[in-house]
Design a protein around this nucleic acid. Structure first.
Lengths: 113, 113
DNA sequence: TAGCCAATTGAAAACTTCTTCAAGTCCCAC
DNA sequence: GTGGGACTTGAAGAAGTTTTCAATTGGCTA
């Protein structure tokens, strides 16, 4: 058996499972952007961003094209935007439905050293 | 700023990013199941499955209720099923777009023992 | 209550992923 | 062709996750 589908799925989700990568995808939802702009929108060092972009590229989730001296990134499929929307819905519901967790989060904010 | 949303999202996806956990969610898509049945449907040791179930529980993605001497698991929201469907669509498209991988999958299907 | 089955937990070892930093490529302007 | 900016790469250590095994809990039934 080759890479079974459920394993491909797990890998796909694992690829999305990083704050910087999520932000990249969110920024790209409204259209392609040069690295410079991603860098401006995310608090991270250039080399770290590059590493995360490489992860997304290897997974085939984004594509990069060089334009002169800059490099422009884009989502490789519009479906990715749908998925992020679905995720946001779930998350919102989940947080809303779990009063305690919400309270906990709020508490943490007030008791930060 | 509290746990920012993009970080919650990343955590959520990371939680889905494991083959055993994906299989559990797929099996639960059609309704609640006792651990015994999950165990029968996934090739993994009981204690390992328990660990993965604990991860899903902590994330609030599934719920467990004890019924007599067995424990029954269920998806905590139907939206999870939607999300998995969205993911399947993306993955299928992505694979279709990447000819070689598709060929590999097809090959595997014909050469199944 | 003793013994058993179902499931879970704790903890250590094995494995992956993340961050960081120095070095490298590519392109453009001088 | 030298210098500089934009980005990427390699590699090493730090941080996090997964697996495994032994020990444990909870509920049944003899």
């Amino acid at each position: 058996m080759p890479v079974p589908l459920y394993q491909a799925k797990a890998e796909f989700f694992r690829t999305l499972g990083h704050p910087v990568r999520i932000r990249v995808l969110e920024l790209l939802q409204d259209g392609p952007l040069p690295v410079r702009d991603l860098l401006a929108g995310i608090e991270v060092e250039a080399s770290n961003l590059s590493q995360q972009l490489a992860v997304l590229r290897r997974a085939g989730i984004v594509t990069s094209t060089r334009e002169g001296s800059t490099v422009v990134y884009a989502l490789s499929s519009k479906d990715v935007a749908d998925l992020l929307r679905a995720a946001r819905r779930i998350l919102t519901d989940m947080i809303a439905g779990q009063g305690e967790l919400l309270a906990e989060l709020r508490e943490a904010e007030h008791t930060r050293p």
